[in-house]
Write a protein that binds this DNA or RNA. Structure first.
Lengths: 207, 207, 207, 207
DNA sequence: GATGAATGAGTGTTCATTCAT
DNA sequence: CATGAATGAACACTCATTCAT
């Protein structure tokens, strides 16, 4: 049991180094040697835990998938729509912020690696969209939101969150990057809520 | 002058091959040899027109920047807000569709190449956001839209368009990918217009 | 004494695994790990019994040398020449057959490892040739065979036996591979006996 | 045409270096780097002419096969049996001598590489045996040799030639290695001719 | 003694770039 | 200008060997 723990630690240690190097250099430019150095092991050691370099990347995708699934909020019926929406947006912004490295590491390969693309979109992005649809559809049923086409609106919302996060990360000089996350959440909630509410009069105000 | 034309053609021919190969394989996996083959020239010839492989990529970024700038719609004061918004969204969706290859080619390197990131975000994404802000602020001034924080809302809108486009391209099985672009535009216009309109009563309806 | 026996068993167990893996993959492609696995021990254990991978090979050569020496028939004066020759050929064919693995294992390295070559040729092939010379020279002295140059004829005979054995092993589709060993012996005895007999009239016939 | 010649030369140059290095170190120990150095080219250049290291080996096998086929003597009806046999043996000894390097290069891999084994035995050894059978069967028909089982006798003869050649090459201290080739031929002809002649009285004598 | 995780030197192969023709 | 053969640095990966447990 002690050895199993040790092996798991080693694996984690290597994966963490891989995240760092992939995020910094991109998958292709990253060298196994550098990952090994950053993990404090010899290059050969990596191959005791992963079949090859690509398996490192796939393992990172797995990690992201697991985290994305684990962190999806449970629907919370007690809150009013606006507060719930705020909760969700805040949560997703945090998810991106906390998994920045992982996302950057994958971002370099998603576009040309079919398997990875399928994993990333199919098991990270689409589930987030689907869960978001479920949250909101419940509010539609309750009459708190107007009926709308979730397969269009939710990608639009998720994409919005993503681009805002990306700008904060990649373009620190943009005005968007400078804003406190809480202000972003507040403004977005107002925007999305107005866009979807069933009773136009019921204005929402963050506090 | 004939030779200059010829040279320009050769250059264009090479760039087109580069777009194709970069989009397919990603920048790193793409080989100069394959680009040359696809352009119908010898590998050495490429180096008569570009200093190195990376210059090809930067030239593609230039192309995208120029196209992004050229295709930005002129503000169109005669249309009502909804129709104008529809025009803009339709136009941006088309831009992504028509520059798919270019965008994919760049997408693989944006995340780790600082200069490229600066170009892409600074000269493609941010101008789109800025122009969008200008369009909408005009409507705000005219009282047709409520006042809002453009540096948050416009990235959200642009990000939405991007993710929808990306899903259509990368995840053909997602429900979003199946929809006619026109339906997407219609639903988005309603969503964004409701989110921003100044007189909640004034519903918009596509026709 | 019990431990010594155990150690000897372990050694033998490892050597048997080595024969199998070397014969299958060749010395260079064989990995210590696989030999260990086949022997049911850990890789490190092999190094308690052998200094390195090459020592395994040399130990196998030793084994072959010992077996080759042990199995050389004693000259048998009572038999007539033909029967004696048959006995010897049958015996050498059997030796090759029974030590197939060992021979294959060594065959991959003999050609480039000087020490091994010296051992194999000097202590396996040449002794067989020498013993064969002794057998036959005795018959020459007795007037049962004509006088001949043993340093040419015996290599020719031994080489014949070897190639026939090799073809049976490596080229199962060749007509030679299909024949019962006994027919081979019979035909070879006739061939060699005619080639060497002193009284051409005295035909030999196997029975 | 000039370039084709040049390319063919380069190819030959590389193959010759490969023969040398493979023969010296064996296929596995030989490094592409060393072959390149010996050929006077950069390592990468080798890959312009051969897909990989193994293709070098297969190309060598091809060369040997071609040479073996090209050098098979035409049957020569005018000569008496003994002289003809002498001609053939002398020729095969020369073939081995002249293709020593090639044979050594292949000898290291034949035992574990199925494709190579099939090529070597199927297209070098078996054809030699078959052609030898054809030569001798003609003499049988003419009544100059007794009838015999060629599928046994010819491998025995070819094997004899091979082992004698191998001993000369690998075991220079053996008495066999010291002999002039012509003496070997003479003794072997006598041995084989006596073994196969139809009229025992007709002794053959080389001169 | 036995283990097997860790090591790191060494290899085949790729590919951006050069330059003689 | 155009070519494409040649280059050689760089990289992923293997595996004999060691040594702490």
């Amino acid at each position: 049991m002690a050895e199993q723990q040790e092996a798991a630690d080693r694996r984690k240690q290597i994966l963490e180094a891989a995240v760092a190097v992939f995020a910094e250099r991109g998958y292709q430019r990253a060298t196994v040697k550098e990952i090994a150095a950053r993990a404090g092991v010899a290059p050969g050691t990596i191959y005791l835990y992963f079949r090859n370099k690509r398996e490192l990347l796939l393992a990172l995708a797995e990690t992201l998938i697991r985290r994305a699934a684990d962190t999806l909020l449970a629907p919370c019926a007690e809150l009013d729509v606006g507060s719930h929406l705020a909760l969700i947006l805040r949560d997703r912004l945090r998810f991106v912020r906390e998994n920045q490295g992982l996302l950057r590491a994958l971002a370099t390969e998603i576009w040309t690696d079919r398997e990875l693309a399928a994993q990333f979109f199919g098991e990270v992005i689409l589930p987030v969209i689907r869960t978001g649809s479920a949250y909101t559809q419940e509010r539609v049923v309750r009459g708190e939101l107007r009926s709308f086409r979730a397969e269009i609106i939710l990608p639009a919302v998720v994409g919005g969150i993503l681009l805002i996060s990306v700008l904060r990360l990649m373009s620190p000089n943009s005005p968007t990057a400078a804003l406190p996350e809480e202000e972003v959440v507040e403004e977005l909630v107002r925007f999305y809520l107005y866009g979807l509410r069933s009773h136009p009069e019921a204005q929402w105000d963050a506090r």
